[in-house]
């Protein structure tokens, strides 16, 4: 079995910002074609800032743990700041992830960007 950091395990056991959001401003849903993991991110945006974020994840310890860590990192950031977050930032934040699980953090970033895109698209239509 993989070696997970205490922090990642803690987020897996007690995920932060878990659940579906009512009336989100943006939704990102991303699936990993290789391993089948699916991540759903919901964001609430106010004055160009992500004021609330929630997630749902179908996946392993790393996928769930990183989803939770991602929501903590992103919450409170402006859309531009959130855009700049990379997969390796999440890995660093998680305190090292087994190499074979690196793609879980990529999935998180894709879901995040998807949610931001969705928000922008919805705003244009308004």
């Amino acid at each position: 079995m993989w070696e997970y950091s205490q922090k990642l395990l803690d987020h897996f056991k007690n995920p932060r910002n878990l659940g579906k959001m009512e009336n989100p401003d943006g939704v990102g849903r991303e699936g990993n074609p290789t391993c089948g993991d699916v991540m759903e991110l919901f964001i609430k945006v106010k004055d160009n800032r992500i004021v609330d974020i929630k997630f749902l994840t179908f996946g392993c310890v790393a996928a769930i743990g990183i989803s939770s860590i991602l929501t903590e990192v992103v919450k409170g950031k402006t859309l531009e700041e959130a855009r700049k977050i990379t997969a390796s930032d999440l890995v660093k934040e998680a305190g090292d992830v087994p190499p074979v699980k690196y793609h879980c953090s990529v999935l998180g970033i894709q879901a995040l960007n998807g949610a931001i895109e969705d928000y922008k698209k919805r705003n244009k239509q308004k």
């Binding site: 079995m1 997970y4 395990l9 897996f12 056991k13 290789t34 391993c35 089948g36 993991d37 179908f58 996946g59 392993c60 310890v61 790393a62 996928a63 769930i64 074979v100 699980k101 793609h103």
Partner: peptide
Amino acid sequence: EGESILINLDLQGVAVSTGSACSSGSL
């Protein structure tokens, strides 16, 4: 997903196995 169940069981002392992609090196 199986690995998530497995780790939760392991945290409570129960050892099982899974064939989930996440538990294999090849994904």
